[in-house]
Design a protein around this nucleic acid. Sequence first.
DNA 1: CACTTGACCTGTCCGC
DNA 2: TGCGGACAGGTCAAGT
Length: 301
Amino acid sequence: MPELPEVETVRRGLKKLLPGREVQSVKTDWPKSLQGSKADVQQFLLGARIEAVHRRAKMLLIELSSDYTLVVHLKMTGQLVFQSDKERFGAGHPTDSLAHKLPDSSTRVEIAFTDGSRLFFNDQRKFGWIRLLPTPELEHLPLFQKLGPEPLDPSFSWQQLRAMLQRRPNASIKAALLDQTVISGIGNIYADEALWGAKIHPTMPIRSLSLVQIKRLHGELISILQLAISKGGSTDKNYVDAKGKKGSYLHFARVFRREGQSCPRCGNAIIKLRVSGRGTHVCPVCQKLKSPRAAKTEANQ
DNA sequence: CACTTGACCTGTCCGC
DNA sequence: TGCGGACAGGTCAAGT
C-alpha cells in the first residue's frame, strides 16, 4: 500500500532523524526481511554511519558511510519507525504512540544505533524487504534501471508520459499506471484517484486515449501525489510514517474505497470493479468507457 | 511478446 | 463461538 506519497513521507521523516547515527547492532528473525550476506552485514552495515536518505519510485535508500546502501521496499504492510533513546525508556508523554511500543509482533528487523536510538522495520505480511547493496552499483541494477520516470520530477512532461504509455498500446490505462517501468511510484490508490480526476475509465486502452486525456492525466497525477504528500499519505490499516503517525489522505479521497457513496463531481454512485486483477473504483458517469470520438461515431450510425 | 494468473504472507471480515 | 474461505494489493515468476 505504501505508494510514492507514503514512501516520500517516510523519507522526509527519516531524513531529519537518521543522518549522523552509527549502526551498532542488527537483529532479524525473518531472513527475507533483511537480505545480504552475514559477511557484508558485518563489514558494511555494523559500524557504518548514515549519510543520507533518498527515495526512488517506492523504494527508500538509506545511504551509508561504507559505500553501501540499505534499499527498503515496504510493499503492502511495511513500516520504518524510528524510536529515540527517550521513547525507548518510556520518557515523554504519548504512551499511545507506536514508537513506545516497539518492538511488536510485526517487527522483522531492528537496527540499533550507538546513541541508544533504534530503527524498526515492521511488516505484518512479510512481503517487504531490506537489501544491503553497494551504492555505486545501484543505478546499474535491473531493479532501478527498468523504472519509469518520477512523476514529481520537474522534468516530467505530458510528452514523456505519452511516450511511456505508448510502449503498451493495448494495455488498459490502469494496468499501465501500475506498471513501474511505465511510470514510477503509482499504486492502486492514486491510480484510481488520478483517473477519476482526469475523467478516464480505467479499462480504456491506451491507444484510444486522446491527447487531451493524456494531458489531463499528467496534471492529475502530479496534483494528486502532491496533495497526498501534504496529507502525510494514505493509511488504510498499516501505513505509518517514520514517527509512527498515520496519513490522512483517504479522508480526502474521491473514489478510492468509496463504492456506494456519491461522486463529488456529479453525485452518481461510485462503483467498484476489478481491472487487471485489482479492486478499482470509478464514477460510471464521469469516467466514460468510450472516448468522446467513439461515442460520437456510434451515435451517427 | 503481451498479457494474465499465481505466489509470496497475515489479519480481518463474512457466511454458515 | 469457531471455522473456512475470500479479500486486501506490490511485484516477480510462471503460465497462456
